[in-house]
Design a protein around this nucleic acid. Structure first.
Lengths: 188, 188
DNA sequence: CTCGGGAATGTTAGTGACTAACATTCGCAG
DNA sequence: CTGCGAATGTTAGTCACTAACATTCCCGAG
């Protein structure tokens, strides 16, 4: 398990370096594996796809749990919003630079950018389940989850693209505040 | 141009049939092409990828224009919401059954479902541009676009999955009303 | 130390999406 | 009919990804 874990880390580090240097499409899995001193099979035993090296995100699942923990009497959209904020608030920022690099890679490549949703879908389902379990109608739950994750993802890409030096947590907080504020003015 | 157009239609029809019958992953491009009486090269000259047969959606770009046409004094989120509603309202439902089939296919396949976002990204960019052009800050524009498209996509998948016989336009209207209503109760 | 077994890795030989280069056929205007 | 351009076909690739099987590595029991 330990030897394997080291190999995985090495593959990921090498892959992100090469992708950043030469672009995702101009690096083959063969190259990544060779540079890391293993065969392409070892690569695929550690990552289900080339894209997953950039996209795998262990934080997402936490969000579902955080939403489920919210007070069931708040409106669905607000519970999702608070859950997402809560989940990110309780994260320290360990490999902040790696996260930044991954988001930047994903933001700059249409295919990767699209695949980000493959992660979000799991989270979305978890959230929807948490909401429907407490009586929220399915469509309302879907809309709430979709809207918040849509806003969150847009904020992440915005952060990766226009980096103003601020940290990620702040940006997310600001984005979701905008979402909450956006409709208080309805009817103006 | 006419011979080509007929071929494209035939390829799409055949492909959707085969996908529905046997599942997206169990149909090769070769088969689609042969069944349609052409070579696989002709397939790729008509569609940039196997996935695009299911995903190409000529309606999306309209949304960007509709948002740009909204009154610039409303809040960003509300302008996006009204723009999207407006764009769908002015659609007749021509190939409704084909749209339904495509959304169902996409909803039932993780890879396709993720790629749906490749379409949304173009739309999202158009919307963001329309908003920033009228002075909205970039993050606010991104969040508004992301939230509405996230909600819209969730509603489409919900419609495809739990078909209650209602039509698509109604479902979208209901979803976006929920989004607007969701935050009126903030602070309850 | 050494030997056995299971985990980690390698080799080989595929399948299938997608592309480039070049050859062919088709439809239509002159 | 003829010739030109668009549409299509052939061929021969590259690359992501997989299955089956062979090999090596680590580690603890004897």
């Amino acid at each position: 398990m330990s030897r394997s874990h080291a190999t995985r880390q090495r593959l990921q580090r090498v892959a992100l370096e090469l992708f950043t240097e030469r672009g995702f499409d101009n690096v083959t899995v063969e190259e990544i594996a060779n540079t890391a001193g293993v065969s392409h099979m070892t690569f695929f035993r550690n990552f289900p796809s080339k894209e997953s090296v950039v996209l795998d995100d262990p934080y997402d699942p936490l969000v579902g749990a955080a939403v489920a923990a919210q007070d069931g009497r708040s409106p669905a959209l607000e519970r999702v919003r608070r859950g997402v904020l809560g989940a990110f608030a309780q994260l320290d920022e360990p490999e902040d630079e790696m996260v930044r690099q991954k988001i930047r890679l994903a933001a700059g490549h249409p295919g990767l950018r699209a695949r980000v949703w493959e992660n979000n879908l799991r989270t979305e389902e978890t959230i929807v389940t948490a909401l429907t379990d407490s009586g929220t109608p399915h469509l309302e739950a879907s809309v709430a989850a979709g809207a918040v994750l849509g806003a969150l993802t847009a904020a992440l890409f915005d952060w990766a693209t226009n980096d103003d030096g601020g940290n990620l947590g702040e940006r997310i907080t600001r984005a979701l505040d905008l979402l909450a504020a956006g409709h208080r003015l309805v009817g103006t």
